Computed example of a mutant assay.
Amino acid sequence: MPVDPNHAEPAATTREQTRRRIVGVAIELLERRGRDAVTTRAVADAAGLQPPALYRLFGDKEGLLDAVAEHGFARFLAAKHIDPDPQDPVGELRAAWDIAVEFGLANPALYALMYAEPARSTTVFQTGLDLLMKRIRRLAAAGLLRVGEDVAAQIVHATARGAVLTWLSLPEPQRDPALLRALREAMVTAVTTQEPAVQEQGPAGAARALRAALPEQDVLSDAEQRLLTEWLDRLST
């Protein structure tokens, strides 16, 4: 017998509402009492459910933690704004770094879960990484990138994560905002140049700028583009 969509939809809606409620309870436990407190029994009790309901929705505790991490990434992305044509791509990079660090300081336990375990790289995490790579690509296209695009993204991630974890590890009287500013500026110095790199001597800056612009062209064949990309990658380093 075919399923009546008028009856199926409420069930699906109720399931999603229950799932969101459980994730919210898990995040509250995580932030108040730490990761060890997020057990299936504790979450089920706090949500007014039996543990089998959690297993049906998330599979196991790790599936629940994956859902919590994904929710965290979604919240983080909701706080980010990307200008498709920024007048100051270096300033935009600074602002994006500040947003990432501020999110980590405001949500320490959730941030640790999201970023301390690479295995929790979700689809939403990949969306955030894609946004970062677009920022990096604009810097490269403007000739302002000092290092390769992948290394630049790694530096941005590493300095933001290091800033959050270091700040949270310090006793409150020792938390000086100058530390965050210094780390941010060290990141900017490591990743970008003060002047467009294509004005400097040597091929590296020009190679990075051309490498960034390649996806926008349609003159070369796929084979030609792959070969040129390989050459430019070598020149840029």
Rank of each mutant, 00 (worst) to 15 (best):
L180R: 02
I136S: 00
E149I: 10
Q194P: 03
P171C: 06
T192C: 14
A209Y: 05
R19Y: 04
A158K: 04
V147T: 15
L220G: 10
V147M: 08
A140Q: 02
P203K: 04
Q87N: 13
P51A: 06
G148E: 06
R35P: 00
V101R: 06
D45Y: 13
A53W: 00
A209D: 01
V90T: 08
A96E: 08
R135P: 00
D150C: 02
L65N: 04
R41S: 06
D66W: 14
A178T: 07
G128R: 06
A207I: 08
P177L: 03
I99D: 13
E92I: 01
W231A: 15
E9Y: 15
L183H: 05
Q17C: 00
G143R: 00
D88L: 07
R184A: 13
A178L: 09
A153N: 01
E230P: 00
D222Q: 06
L65D: 12
Q225A: 11
A152V: 07
T237A: 14
F76Q: 11
M133R: 14
E102K: 09
R21Y: 02
H157N: 10
P52I: 09
V124F: 04
Q17G: 13
Y115A: 01
A67M: 05
L54N: 12
A112Q: 10
Q154E: 15
A69K: 02
A190Y: 00
A204M: 04
L110C: 15
G48K: 12
A12N: 05
R120F: 09
L65V: 11
D233H: 13
R75A: 14
V219L: 11
T166M: 11
Y115C: 00
A152S: 08
K80R: 12
P86T: 12
A212L: 06
L30T: 01
L77F: 05
Q201E: 09
V25D: 00
A53C: 02
A163S: 15
D83T: 05
A223L: 11
R137W: 03
A178R: 08
L57N: 04
A213G: 07
A100T: 14
L235S: 07
V23M: 05
A95P: 00
T122G: 11
F73C: 07
D98Y: 03
L57I: 11
G104C: 05
Q174F: 05
D83S: 10
A112K: 13
L210T: 10
